[in-house]
Amino acid sequence: MTSDQRTITNPPALHDPTPFGYSHAVSAPGELVVIGGQYASDATGVPVPGDFAAQVELSFERLRSALGGVGLGLEHVVRLGTFVVDHDLAKLEVLGKALHARFGDRLPAQTLSGVASLALPGMLFEVDALAVRPPGDPRP
């Protein structure tokens, strides 16, 4: 599926969400694939120390790897869930830039949750995703 097969809807009755790095609604034909939370970790799952921006970058690389494991890519993502420890506007700006760098103007729907902490000490960011496998795609 190409990003053009996703239908992005930002109704005029709602604010323009694109400066914040998301779309209000995204639909696509095909099979739904759920990707669990990805975070900045080493090969054993231990969180990698780093500032928020570095963890965002590595978390999205982990997301790309998880998608690749089922034969999909970021272009198949229709929704993201993002979790930010001690969320503030500076972190929102970092996240927005990372999303635009990966998705351009074809932004998935997204819910950002500010949280006090995540599963493991040192985690500052986590992302999960819903992706759609195109109809007739034979990959697992």
Rank of each mutant, 00 (worst) to 15 (best):
E61W: 01
D105A: 13
Y39G: 15
G37H: 02
R62Q: 14
L74F: 13
V94W: 05
H100G: 14
Q38Y: 01
V94I: 09
A53Y: 05
L107C: 06
A109G: 10
L107Q: 01
D88Q: 04
L80F: 05
G69I: 07
G45W: 00
R62L: 08
H76R: 14
A53T: 02
F103I: 09
E75K: 15
L99Y: 00
A101I: 14
T111Q: 12
V94N: 06
Q110P: 00
Q110H: 06
H100I: 13
E61T: 11
S41M: 10
V85Y: 00
G68Y: 12
A43E: 15
L80I: 01
F103G: 01
T44H: 09
A98K: 06
G68H: 10
L80A: 08
A43D: 15
V78R: 00
G96L: 08
T44G: 11
G81V: 01
G81Y: 03
L63Q: 03
Y39S: 12
G73M: 07
A98L: 14
F52Q: 00
G81S: 00
R102G: 14
E61A: 15
R62Y: 01
S65F: 11
Y39A: 13
V46E: 10
H100T: 12
P49A: 02
G81K: 02
L95C: 05
E61N: 08
A43I: 07
L72F: 13
G96V: 06
R79T: 08
E57M: 07
V85D: 02
L89Q: 09
T82W: 00
L72N: 05
D51Q: 05
S65D: 15
V46D: 03
D42M: 13
A66M: 10
F103A: 08
K91H: 05
E57I: 05
P49W: 13
K91F: 03
G37N: 07
H76F: 12
Y39N: 06
H76P: 05
L72D: 02
Q110V: 06
A109E: 00
H87G: 08
T44Q: 14
F83I: 06
D42W: 09
L89C: 08
T44R: 10
D51C: 10
V94H: 04
L92I: 06
K91L: 06
R106T: 08
G37C: 10
T82C: 12
E93N: 07
L58A: 12
L74T: 05
